[in-house]
Amino acid sequence: MGRGLRLSRSLQLLGAALLATASQVSIAAKDDPAAFEAALLEAVFSDHARYLADLAVAHEHGEGVEREPARAAALYCESARLGNVEAMYSLGWMYANGRGLERNDAYAGTLFAMAAFFGHPQADRMRRYTGDYEGAVPDCLQPPPDESPDPGWSAEAYIAALSVQRQHLARLVVNLSADYAISPRLALAIALTESNLDADAVSSKNAMGVMQLIPDTAARFNVRKPFDPEENIRGGLAYLRWLLAYFRGDIALAAAGYNAGERAVDRYRGVPPYAETQAYVARILAFMQRRKHAYDSRVTEPSPVAPALQLVSERGGGS
């Protein structure tokens, strides 16, 4: 509680400074503390991203500082991660022209696709020279490896608190999750949210079993006996592994895809505006307490709008 109060006080002080310098935080938002804090954080990220992009320009062209293309590229990349569209475009240009970096049209195409998604006027035209987006992402934009995904959380302690009839299925979910490189916590979150660990559950849409597989999904992942607990759980975990690869480890988007289908997430470029799906994603994220998960990029090609979706999600616009 003390840390939260200190953070809130720090944000208030920073907010006052930002407002005094005509920042983008709206004065009206101050009437709603939560909205004010969200707008303030957005302004902080935006201002810092702009500062990094400006510094990158200086290092790229030697304006007032030593000309260091490699340093410029690193600054552009960090700015792009924070959502600066001009930095996305500029880094793409460096890759497309081999300026300070080894030429890489695939990386350039990704960065131009990201910038075009956010409305950059030249980015879409540049994609004609670099080719279509292929899913290649520069290392500097990749999320850091998740070496300790659930510190302090014990699957066994959680299972022990369940009713006796659900403990067997919960352990089955946890044990099988390792076969699919999925966090036991995420596997349990999906199983609990889908059926509350009921192997006989059937929804109004004919979703079946522990992982609530609809017939098309069951067939897609070779589930022939959807009411067999192990086969059903394996099918659900296989689909979840696919979704994590498709959405590049974004738990919110993967959960939205599990509930509403990956095509709906692509169509709305984020969590679809369905009350059920939004509540579903909120429950999964509350259970997980994080947004990122390791994934195997070999499982499938990424969503065609994956880079932009990741940026939207990371900045709070995806849930």
Rank of each mutant, 00 (worst) to 15 (best):
I233T: 03
P226E: 05
E63G: 08
L243R: 06
F221Q: 06
R9P: 01
D47I: 11
S23E: 02
I27V: 13
A264G: 07
V305W: 06
S10T: 12
G15F: 01
A56K: 00
T130P: 02
A56P: 00
G261C: 08
A157F: 05
L11M: 14
L101I: 07
F247Y: 14
V44F: 10
R263P: 01
A306D: 03
N175E: 15
G209R: 03
F45Y: 11
A17Y: 11
G64C: 13
Q289Y: 08
R290S: 02
P302M: 11
L309C: 06
F36L: 05
A116C: 10
V57D: 15
A275T: 15
Y95C: 04
S79D: 06
Q165L: 14
A218T: 00
G152M: 13
I182T: 04
V173W: 03
N232Y: 10
L11W: 07
S319F: 11
Q24I: 07
P226I: 05
L309V: 12
L7E: 15
R234Y: 07
D105V: 01
N175Q: 13
G270F: 06
V85L: 08
G15C: 10
D228V: 07
A218G: 07
G2L: 14
P304M: 14
Q167T: 12
P143K: 09
L52A: 00
L244I: 10
L75W: 04
Y268E: 09
Y258K: 02
K205N: 13
A39C: 13
Y89F: 15
L111T: 01
Y95R: 04
R9V: 14
T193N: 12
Y95K: 03
C77R: 00
A106H: 04
D296Y: 07
Y107C: 09
A43R: 08
D228H: 07
S177G: 08
L186A: 07
L18Y: 13
D54F: 09
L188Y: 02
Q310L: 15
G317I: 03
Y274T: 12
D54G: 08
R224I: 03
T193C: 14
Y133F: 15
V265D: 03
T110W: 00
Y268A: 09
M288T: 01
S8D: 15
A58P: 01
V85Q: 03
I182M: 08
Y239I: 04
N175T: 08
Y295L: 02
P215W: 11
P138V: 08
L285A: 04
I27R: 05
Y180S: 12
Y158K: 07
E231Q: 14
A115Y: 00
P304Y: 11
R6T: 14
V25G: 00
A252T: 04
E231A: 14
L75Y: 00
V223L: 08
A58K: 12
L41E: 10
A39P: 00
A260Q: 05
P138T: 12
F221T: 02
A96N: 03
N222W: 05
V65L: 09
P184N: 09
R283Q: 13
E156I: 09
A72T: 02
D31L: 05
A157P: 05
D198S: 13
L75V: 12
L240P: 00
S10P: 04
A16W: 12
P143E: 09
G64M: 12
V137I: 14
N196M: 13
Y295W: 11
G209T: 03
Q165G: 10
